[in-house]
Write a protein that binds this DNA or RNA. Structure first.
Lengths: 362, 362
DNA sequence: TGCATTTGCTAAATCCATTTAGCTTTTTTG
DNA sequence: CAAAAAAGCTAAATGGATTTAGCAAATGCA
């Protein structure tokens, strides 16, 4: 961020600078100079001055004055980290937009903004603690550092937190441990004896919980520890790199839990290139219900992150908060599970072909 | 949209209602009642009244008064249709956010909003023609109806238009006909004699241009017309349905141009279920460079919609417009082409295996 | 020349929330 | 009991842009 240099230019300053009234300047800048009968020469002078002084209209002032009587604007925002997968944010955006359309009345208009902070550095986000920005926000994809900050900070507006528990705030959470436990069970049921997990380096609260539950369940049921592969990020190629490296070192797995579906598709490619068959040789389970997961080859079993369901809960909660109603401090959401072919352990070689022709028959 | 019911509630109304001053009400609602020594009983009365009257703070008023001297806020927006694929919007959002971070100074803060209109009905979008909402916008994913409206409407703020030409506006466009022509050429080069194209029912300006160029090139080079399949939407399952129907009617194709990558993945599934091999029996080319296109099986050849490149051009243009600079009325962007296996026609059965081992060797 | 009209501009009010200085009234202290 | 301090509140100014009513000068017309 560069340092400040000069105070904002207002219509008054332009007016003083030119020796005309602010009314005249305003008329010109609002394109009202024709009906206000401003002399063409004056119009030009004002335009030139505005341009050279670097005039930027103050929307707050404009809106305050100009808005048609009885129209209020409600500013909502989705605050998310830069590093988070956009599809998740997109779901939230869509849900919020849809709700906003329903809630809109002739005298109320909504604006939905998306603002981003760098993962772990939400405290540096400008205007976060100002009371003059948002009527309400949905906060998501925070890292533990962010959570610590938020727990102490007093946000001066209603907020719904997605995916983590922050004392005193309305939180919508995935049922804890569910995703990790279910994923482990699915792999165990598929007969895996040497399962692995792959995750990105940055761990959100949610992901950490999923990993812990996965390990815990595995240990409890089989007495084994999973192989843990860490990829640089959540891109398929990064997962592929991590997995290839593991294989090159002689590591082997017969089951894979990927903390996002995008990691899974990276793994798919590696397995195919290595001649490792899914699900015959290795079972794969992902998280997030990527819109294309069903169309992967083979279709990917997904313990869906509860994002869509969480968003569906969060949006109405936000509106209730805006109305001043009291809301439960915590809402738990149980993610859906999509069992697909990637974990359908084929006992014999023929099974996969059978499954395929079954699908074709439908 | 519901009808209006009552005028907005202000601090003054609450004050009058309770027989106190507006200053007191403001102090309480801004959580300043402790240092302002407001009696607890009064605090309670004010809170209750605010709640029961349905008070909603006017952010414009608040911001106008409260902002630290010399901080100006610049409101930018991406206006897109509800029906457009979110990843495209996401790219624009990311690019804009990144630019905003660079442009930010201590005395200037930016807000980036995403607002949506229903495809073809941008004229119904509230506040679109108001001068008190945005400092600048990027407009994208409009339908021809929208374009007609925009050509006549006088937007009272700088705007950069993505993907179409609107007279008098700064437009960033894909080099016309490029995508359609290249796609046709790729299929022709792959030896296709009975190519088809699949697109959704709603046609944006851009998509219509691509289709026309595809047909035209095909006609010119081979004298043939493509089979045209229309799917309900852009979801994979919708593409699959359209293709299955075509096949059920006895229709056959040996090349497929899908106007988005998501349609292609739907087609992939159908082909696999039918036992039609890609690329041996049918070549497939998509558009959009889906982040996973490289990981489809086989990797999908994509004449990438120039979205990312267009966004990269559009964002700086928007900032130049904000600074009052003059900008070119039109910037053309040539989309990249990603040739992958889905159009690598295997002359003999062995070629596919060879290609595979080549990839593994890397 | 004299009156009416047009042109070109300005003063002041307004939108809403916040803050500062200050005024009563009550309570505490010496 | 008088003076000082504290409690509890209010009036008025402020921020930026816009609009309305209206004034003065210039022009048109008879």
């Amino acid at each position: 961020m560069k340092p400040a240099h000069r105070p904002p230019v207002t219509v008054h300053q332009i007016a003083r600078h030119l020796g005309v009234s602010a009314a005249t300047v305003s008329s010109v800048l609002a394109h009202r100079h024709v009906e206000r009968r401003i002399a063409p020469a004056t119009v030009e002078r004002i335009r030139a001055a505005a341009q050279s002084l670097g005039y930027i209209p103050n929307m707050a002032g404009r809106r305050l004055r100009a808005h048609r009587t009885a129209t209020r604007q409600i500013d909502l925002a989705i605050l998310t980290s830069f590093e988070a997968p956009l599809p998740l944010v997109g779901q939230a955006l869509h849900a919020l937009q849809r709700a906003v359309e329903v809630q809109s009345t002739a005298d109320t208009r909504y604006a939905v903004a998306i603002e981003m902070f760098h993962a772990g550095r939400i405290r540096e986000k400008t205007g976060l603690l100002d009371a003059d920005r948002y009527h309400g926000v949905i906060l998501t994809n925070t890292l533990p550092e962010d959570d610590r900050f938020l727990a102490e900070a007093a946000l001066p507006y209603p907020a719904v937190i997605l995916g983590r528990r922050i004392p005193g705030r309305c939180c919508v959470l995935e049922a804890p441990e569910f995703v990790g436990r279910r994923s482990a069970e699915i792999l165990i049921d598929a007969g895996c004896r040497a399962p692995a997990v792959i995750h990105g380096r940055l761990l959100t609260h949610t992901t950490a919980d999923r990993l812990a539950a996965f390990r815990h369940t595995l240990r409890e049921r089989t007495g084994r520890e999973p192989t843990v592969l860490v990829s640089e990020g959540l891109q398929p190629r990064q997962a592929a790199a991590a997995l290839e490296q593991h294989w090159a070192r002689g590591g082997r797995v017969d089951g894979l839990f990927t903390v996002t579906d995008s990691l899974a598709i990276g793994a798919y490619r590696v397995f195919r290139d290595l001649g490792v068959r899914i699900p015959a040789d290795v079972a794969v389970v992902g998280v997030g219900d990527h819109e294309l997961a069903e169309f992967f080859d083979p279709p990917l079993t997904t313990v869906a992150g509860a994002n869509e369901a969480m968003v569906a809960e969060a949006v109405p909660l936000l509106f209730r908060l805006l109305r001043g109603e009291t809301v439960p401090p915590e809402v738990l959401v149980v993610p859906p599970v999509f069992l697909r072919e990637s974990t359908r352990r084929a006992r014999s070689a023929g099974d996969a072909a059978k499954a395929r022709s079954r699908r074709r028959a439908r």
